[in-house]
Design a protein around this nucleic acid. Structure first.
Length: 655
DNA sequence: AGCACGCCGACT
DNA sequence: GTCGGCGTGCTC
């Protein structure tokens, strides 16, 4: 028999590292099957079927043993095109993980009914969508910018404008969203697809409104992790069609298999929502670059200011800064939070100038108050000895949500009923530090006739009317208002930027600039409790010197993004052994730690250069494989490996 | 993960 | 004699 036989190479949809390779199966005579389709295949026994995807159909197998046959084609839809498969392999390799884990992020769960409807529509030629011809009256980016952004293999940073504008229907949207929408429309008018990855649903909402003005509905597709799964699958199927689309979504959208992609846009890549929370934790920024180089797709990072990583790439000439016109930015004034003894302090303990400005602004519009985090105070401590209060259950920090309810642990949520201090046996808790919530409740009392609107992660507001109100929002949850806020208050600046986290500066910067961009053009922004270079940079609207300084420091200290890292956690012996192996394949690596992270486990952070990246991640992947294959007397994996794990660095740096 | 294969203790 | 424990290894 021979040349006529077909062999399907299958990647299994499994979480097991030991099955992380391709398996060959005979395609039974007469079975309809192409590369990219979902299949069921026998594994080890003939009644045990595993799901997988056909990666290729070939004539020969290099497997010496006997081949089993594909048991079933789940559906004929080629949900895993070759380009996506190559991308998943590349991303997995970089993170020392399995392609199957990336596939699970990229391809949504199948919905039979949705797929049947879509399939029927595909077979019906009369239902074909119109060809998109030209965008209506675009506020055009200068042609040379568009040209350089859309050039094959281009990598750019696009500085987005500040301030608010409105859709055709009059709902307020940030100018940045409109700038992105118009860029997408330009590419679509050249029959090219565009992928836009934004951090969260709020940005999706803004961009969607902006896009709806310039893109026909049947060329606009949402690809977001938090939409209903059936709808997500339907949208995924739409992107498999050949007509160009604009795909708007969160970090999952970066994998979208849209055809003829002309531009891949990553918005606000400093936002932590771009870091995938599932193993192997790929970052949209890295996936985008991998895709750019694999497929020759131009990549554009966009934001009101660049992330550290992008700033570094610009320094290296790896990413170019797209030239854009200067846009108006609200006036930013840093001011110190008044202390209790300050005679000029307002009732809300704000400097009297700020208080006066609020009074004035509240005469004709809403005032936005950005707070660092939810909750009444940043933590509780023993009233007697001032030791930080921790949970008797798990040792996590105790918090009191609004100052009135019983304190609870912010890690495990257990209420602290009969709390007593570990140090001095005191039983009285008091708020630690200033407590933003207190400032806010004081503010509320100072303006008794003004309504207070709250917006946080759990109860977000997307729009507030342009009417007097105190709008209190946690960072990232700020609503917009028509024309922008006449006054914005950024509270608690120092504690935001002084956290020990490696991302503190970057995240602070992004949160502040975001809030500033929601202000009116003629608006004023006060930042409380912040001084030094960040305050100057915020006032001047230029972070250049602060970012350069930070990058130089990271370079000197050998910290990301100047180097790459991986964390190894497990028994001291296993971790050390793995580290020694790594040093053999890449002599340039060095380490931080090990530090003890729980009973009998230590965490070691391995630092390696970008040029060693391939060797190091390959070795880590092999080590993971070996661990899975080895004896399993202890159910849990013996060493936990996380590549580019900056959270581990934070945990190591300060408790 | 499952599931088969394999090599020691108690059973009709 | 063989039924079945779970320790070890492999899955096209």
């Amino acid at each position: 028999m021979s040349d006529s036989r077909r062999i399907a190479r299958v990647v299994l949809d499994t979480r097991l590292p030991q099955l992380d390779r391709l398996f060959d199966y005979i395609v039974p005579e007469g079975m309809e099957l192409t590369a990219g389709v979902r299949v069921k295949v026998p594994l080890r026994s003939h009644k045990n079927l595993a799901e997988g995807y056909v990666v290729a159909v070939v004539g020969e197998s290099d497997h010496s043993g006997k081949l089993a046959a594909v048991a079933e084609v789940v559906s004929l839809v080629p949900v895993l095109p070759d380009g996506l498969w190559q991308l998943c392999r590349s991303v997995a390799a970089r993170a020392a993980g399995s392609p199957a884990d990336i596939l699970r992020l990229a391809i949504p769960k199948r919905y039979v009914k949705v797929e049947k409807d879509w399939w029927a529509r595909q077979q019906d030629p009369s239902a074909a969508g119109e060809i998109y011809s030209d965008a209506p009256e675009l506020e055009r980016h200068p042609a040379n910018i568009v040209e350089s952004l859309l050039a094959p293999h281009a990598r750019n940073f696009l500085a987005l404008p500040y301030g608010m504008t409105a859709t055709d229907e009059g709902s307020p949207i940030p100018r940045s969203a409109r700038a992105i929408a118009h860029l997408a429309a330009e590419a679509l008018s050249q029959s090219q697809s565009v992928i836009i990855c934004v951090p969260d649903w709020r940005d999706i909402e803004h961009c969607h409104r902006a896009l709806s003005d310039v893109i026909p509905a049947d060329h606009l597709v949402l690809a977001s992790g938090d939409q209903p799964p059936a709808q997500r699958y339907g949208n995924y199927l739409r992107t498999l069609e050949s007509s160009p689309v604009v795909v708007l979504g969160n970090r999952h959208a970066v994998y979208s298999p849209a055809s003829n992609i002309g531009l891949l846009i990553v918005v606000d890549d400093a936002d932590s929502a771009h870091r995938e929370p599932l193993a192997p934790y790929p970052h949209t920024r890295d996936v985008a670059l991998a895709r750019g180089s694999l497929e020759g797709i131009p990549v554009c990072f966009a934001g009101v200011s660049p992330s550290l990583a992008v700033a570094r790439w610009m320094d290296m000439g790896y990413v170019l800064q797209a030239p854009v016109a200067q846009t108006p930015r609200a006036r930013v004034i840093p001011s110190a939070l008044s202390l209790a003894g300050d005679t000029n302090a307002s009732p809300a303990r704000l400097p009297s100038t700020v208080f006066q400005a609020m009074k004035e602004a509240l005469g004709h519009g809403p005032v936005l108050i950005q707070v660092f985090r939810a909750g009444y105070s940043p933590g509780l401590s023993c009233a007697q000895c001032k030791t930080r209060a921790s949970c008797g259950h798990c040792g996590g920090p105790l918090r009191s949500e609004d100052g009135a309810t019983r304190p609870a642990c912010s890690w495990c949520g257990v209420a602290a009923t009969a709390w007593h201090c570990e140090e001095c046996n005191g039983v009285v808790l008091q708020p630690r530090g200033q407590g933003i919530g207190r400032t806010i409740s004081d503010l509320g009392k100072s303006f008794p006739s003004i309504p207070v609107l709250r917006s946080d992660g759990e109860h977000p507001l997307s729009n507030v009317p342009h009417a007097p109100a105190l709008v209190i929002a946690t960072r990232g949850s700020e609503p917009v208002t028509p024309g922008g806020f006449p006054l914005v208050l950024l509270l608690d600046g120092a504690s935001m930027v002084q956290r020990s986290s490696l991302g503190a500066l970057e995240e602070s910067l992004e949160a502040w600039e975001h809030a500033i961009s929601f202000a009116a053009d003629e608006g004023i922004v006060y930042v409380t409790d912040l001084d030094g270079p960040p305050a100057l940079a915020l006032a001047a609207g230029s972070w250049n010197s602060v970012i350069r300084h930070e990058l130089a420091q990271r370079e000197a200290l050998r910290l990301p993004p100047a180097v790459r890292i991986a964390s190894l956690s497990g028994s001291s012996r296993d971790v050390e052994a793995m580290y020694e192996n790594l040093k053999r394949v890449a002599p340039g690596v060095d380490s931080l730690g090990p530090v003890s992270t729980g009973d009998h486990t230590v965490t070691l952070i391995v630092r390696f250069s970008y040029s060693d990246g391939e060797a190091v991640t390959r070795e880590l992947h092999a080590a993971r494989h070996k661990l899975a294959m080895g004896p399993r007397r202890n159910q849990t994996e013996r060493v936990r490996i996380v590549v580019d794990d900056t959270a581990a660095l934070d945990a190591l740096a300060g408790e």
